[in-house]
Write a protein that binds this DNA or RNA. Structure first.
Lengths: 253, 253
DNA sequence: ATTAAAATGATTTAATTTAATCACTTTGGA
DNA sequence: TCCAAAGTGATTAAATTAAATCATTTTAAT
């Protein structure tokens, strides 16, 4: 075979096979076990796979104890803390909307034992939560955006505009007081805005490292939110400004 | 912890954790390694998990070499053969619709390297295919049915009625000449019917073991199909009858 | 063409996991 | 209450995997 590079070969094999042994990969790639192990160490460091003594899997975004690389790269702890605070806002019986993202996935992991109704644009969240009987899951539908593996487009947005959740949790890659929550594409911005449209409480979950950056499309002005949950790394100046806004500011720590 | 039975505890832990070691489960359940291994053997025999030397994962329906129990329980080989035939009907550039199910998932696994557009109601298929760059994926959206982890309801159906795929692949749990394709709930029947509505080719993929059984709701009459793909275990009498119908009968073997 | 650097493969050793066995405990009738 | 059966835990031996080391091959630049 060996038509393209071995790391891609390994990744493709993992995409097709769930749980895999080193030996399987040796056969699939026609490389030696030593080489495979070296490759797996690399992939592990990138955080895309999980390893145990005899097994390898693709990380399907359900990891709870994150790989070391994940901890380093993506301020994991802050997201955990933010999700803790967010989950406390949820009561049994609530209808909640979950935007796509890793922080909202963390929220999802905290409500598995609670009877709630969830609407989401995120395939991982939908699939994950659908395994728990107490939870009724709705996915908004539409074209799948590769990078986030979530739904975009008018079809899904129209559903968001028909539904009135108790709480809507919105994540973002960039937010600021002047430009609000912004998104890199119009599609994503429209979906995010949809999440903010009909909910009783509209909650932003965003770590401080994303504050004061922005993308091309403004999605939601900050004064649309009823609550903003972030971590304790904002400087005191910004903190004071944000505390005097219409929304309630929660500092997770 | 130990409030409910250990097997459920293990399953819940697996739902949350992707790749797991025996030792982790020992800690989570407060049982001995020996007991955990005995439990894992049971779960493996039921086909719900995969094991290697040091690792355990939940089967997330992407297995390619199935567990032995799967082979026995669910006429796996027939589905493979049917999917082989089905995949051959697909050309690069096609728009195809995939109903929810394991047979259609097998079809999905055969088109990962082909540039096609896919619309589906199945969360597993959507998530799986969204990992491949060549493929544009759309999910119909709506409430998630627990048992099949696929979308049901009017919202998704409305999208199906707006779209005109080249080929629609429909699976089923029961089919017969007199009652057509039937489904256990009205919701599921309506979605299946939606898949048959606008497609150029409408293809039934169904193994012979499901022939001449039926559920409560008729979804699609057989004469709506342009092609039916099944295995070679139909008796000669039925075979003759089915060969003289309006659809083209493919026997996978 | 030559050489240094990187990547790979093979071998041996160490670490880890599993399987098998047996003793002990719990459970559900008689 | 007693007993049999099933389930559980601990121990040891066997099997499997990973890590470390070194020789070999490939690669890329001069």
């Amino acid at each position: 075979m060996g038509k393209y590079n071995r790391l891609d070969q390994i990744m493709d094999y993992l995409k097709l096979h769930n749980l895999v042994t080193v030996e399987e990969l040796v056969i699939a790639t026609e490389a030696s076990p030593a080489t495979i192990r070296r490759d797996l160490i690399k992939l592990d460091q990138h955080g895309v796979i999980s390893r145990t003594h005899g097994g390898v899997t693709l990380n399907r975004f359900i990891p709870s104890q994150p790989t070391t690389s994940e901890k380093i790269h993506k301020n994991f702890n802050e997201k955990q803390l933010i999700a803790d605070v967010a989950a406390k806002l949820i009561k049994p019986g609530d209808s909640i909307a979950l935007d796509a993202g890793t922080t909202t996935l963390e929220i999802a992991k905290r409500i598995t034992q609670m009877p709630v109704r969830v609407i989401t644009s995120d395939l991982h969240i939908a699939l994950f939560l659908s395994e728990f009987k107490q939870i009724e899951v709705t996915i908004i539908g539409g074209k799948i955006d590769d990078s986030s593996q979530s739904c975009i487009g008018e079809h899904g947005r129209s559903l968001l505009l028909q539904i009135n959740p108790d709480i809507s949790f919105i994540s973002c890659n960039s937010w600021s007081l002047s430009k609000g929550v912004t998104a890199p594409t119009e599609d994503k911005a429209l979906i995010k805005a949809g999440f903010a449209e009909k909910a009783d409480k509209v909650v932003l979950v965003a770590d401080s490292s994303k504050y004061n950056s922005y993308s091309l499309f403004t999605s939601i002005p900050l004064n649309r939110f009823t609550d903003i949950i972030t971590d304790n790394h904002l400087d005191t100046e910004t903190l004071q400004v944000l505390q005097n806004q219409i929304f309630k500011l929660h500092i997770a720590s």
